[in-house]
């Protein structure tokens, strides 16, 4: 039994963390429900604030979708770690021999799944509210949106773990996350806009490549530095 536990693989660790998070979410549905309602509110607020016609809505829709996701996920990312602080679960996790990167990756995967579900439900509503029909390559959205979501969730999970240790935990996360996420937001908004308007302004898909590069660099750095955050005393 002892040796069986020692020989547990890294992917096995990630899986057991992930299974725990998914199970909690399946029973409470806290994160998904609150994110969904919050994002819906942002979409409604924006459409009332701007009252867009079909042409202008194509121009701004990408930005509204990204910003709605951004605000919604910030509200739930804090909760992802706050849950671990209650009953000293985080301290218990730190005492286990597993490394922090596995815990981090599992949290990112879980949050990525929640945000993706929210986008999947919200997408059709969004297209109806803004009278959209994409003029460019719509299938590219299946590439751009997961890339952008990954950038948001990977950084968001990392900086939520960082800011949870500070005094004003809820306030600090957006203050750190937004500036660092800005390049990815820009790439995501510009590629979604190109796809919706079909203006062919980015024939080499430079912005999508940039987004992919951003994902690789920031995820790697986060994985390397997560142990430092977790052990910060």
């Amino acid at each position: 039994m002892e040796s069986a536990q020692n020989s547990i693989s890294w992917t096995g660790l990630v899986w057991s963390h992930l299974r725990k998070d998914l199970q909690i979410e399946w029973r409470s549905r806290e994160a998904i429900n609150s994110m969904l309602f919050f994002a819906l509110l942002v979409v409604v607020l924006f459409s009332m604030a701007f009252d867009p016609t079909a042409d202008t809505s194509r121009e701004i829709a990408g930005g509204v979708l990204c910003v709605a996701t951004l605000f919604a996920s910030v509200s739930s990312l804090n909760q992802a770690w706050a849950r671990e602080i209650r009953h000293q679960v985080l301290d218990a996790l730190r005492m286990t021999p597993s490394d922090g990167a596995a815990l981090f990756l599992a949290k990112v995967l879980a949050n990525f799944l929640y945000v993706s579900i929210v986008q999947f439900v919200l997408g059709p509503i969004f297209f109806i509210f803004y009278n959209l029909h994409p003029l460019g390559n719509a299938w590219l959205l299946l590439l751009v949106i997961p890339f952008g979501t990954w950038a948001l969730v990977a950084n968001g999970t990392f900086f939520a773990a960082l800011s949870i240790r500070s005094r004003n935990r809820e306030l600090l996360l957006p203050l750190i996350l937004f500036p660092i996420f800005l390049p990815a937001l820009l790439a995501m908004v510009l590629s979604v806009k190109t796809i919706l308007t079909g203006d062919n302004s980015d024939p080499n898909l430079l912005w999508i490549k940039l987004l992919g590069g951003y994902d690789i660099i920031f995820t790697t750095v986060s994985l390397i530095l997560f142990d430092t955050i977790l052990e910060a005393e």
């Binding site: 240790r165 005094r167 306030l171 600090l172 203050l175 750190i176 955050i229 005393e233």
Partner: peptide, 14 residues
Amino acid sequence: LTRRFASGAQMQTL
């Protein structure tokens, strides 16, 4: 700002 929001050795690491 982060340096203002936390304190001690923990803040320095973050």
